[in-house]
Design a protein around this nucleic acid. Structure first.
Lengths: 142, 142
DNA sequence: GCTACATCCTCTAGCGACTAGAGGAGCAAG
DNA sequence: CTTGCTCCTCTAGTCGCTAGAGGATGTAGC
């Protein structure tokens, strides 16, 4: 029965950097852990699990505000999960939109690069396309 | 022969917001235009073309620093275009990586959402997957 | 006990690319 | 001459951290 691990070990265990952990505490995602006599944070299993949750959610691109809501839901498991569901759906929609935009960008960049004759800037396709949107395939990127 | 348009019209013409145009001037992407007696900026064709260039480059996701280089190149058209080429290639690589990551995320989010039984949080798949990375298909997202 | 060194603490400031807002001046139309 | 729009400068805020200063605490070896 020990009373917890220091922040450095929590960082190693979770893959979240030490200052980031303190930042999560500061913005209220992670509750303040107990401290040692010497004022050092001691993280127990509950904190470590919450930290893992946060990290995973951040990896999936959820914003801090969304994670706050998701954590609230996790704390009250009797509620309907539809808020969680809709947060995830919104996130999915966002990801899909990004993919679509980036795919269009990719095509445009590829066209730019493929058309480059490796001469001087004067007849560089990259510069030309940037200067003249009309020379661009997709008028609606971004 | 007129001497230029005010910033609001430049904004409408370019699709760049007024404060953003001023910001570009501040960080040195857009040269300071002449002013009227009443101290208002007046943009001529040269400025508007440069603004369009910047906008298009930003839409393609180039960073301000990269755009600075690209504009320098455009100003000296006798040089080799290989710096422009390599900036564009780096950008393409970045876009490709993002697409790959987002595609993995999309799959994970989809799985989450599809598994959601729309009951309570207690057995919500969304919350569960976030809490337990082991339940996640791709351990290497992001 | 003493020294070295790692780890921890708080606090402030910086990143990129804007965006928002305060507080005021200029200008065109009625 | 007033209304209402556009414009000006300036500062501060956004997001999610990250870096660094300056100091306290903890641990291992001698």
């Amino acid at each position: 029965m020990h009373d917890g691990v220091p922040i450095g070990e929590a960082a190693r265990a979770s893959g979240v950097k030490v200052p980031t952990i303190r930042y999560y505490e500061q913005v209220g995602l992670l509750p303040e852990p107990p401290r040692t006599e010497g004022n050092r944070r001691l993280y127990g299993g509950r904190h470590l699990r919450r930290l893992a949750f946060i990290r995973h959610a951040r990896e999936l691109g959820f914003e801090v505000e969304a994670i706050r809501t998701l954590l609230d839901l996790q704390d009250n498991p009797g509620q309907s999960c539809s808020p969680a569901d809709s947060i995830a759906r919104l996130r999915l929609k966002d990801v899909e939109e990004r993919i679509a935009r980036l795919t269009a960008l990719k095509a445009e960049l590829q066209r730019m690069i493929d058309g480059c004759s490796h001469g001087t800037v004067a007849d560089c396709r990259v510069i030309e396309v940037l200067a003249d949107h009309g020379a661009c395939a997709s008028p609606t990127h971004r």
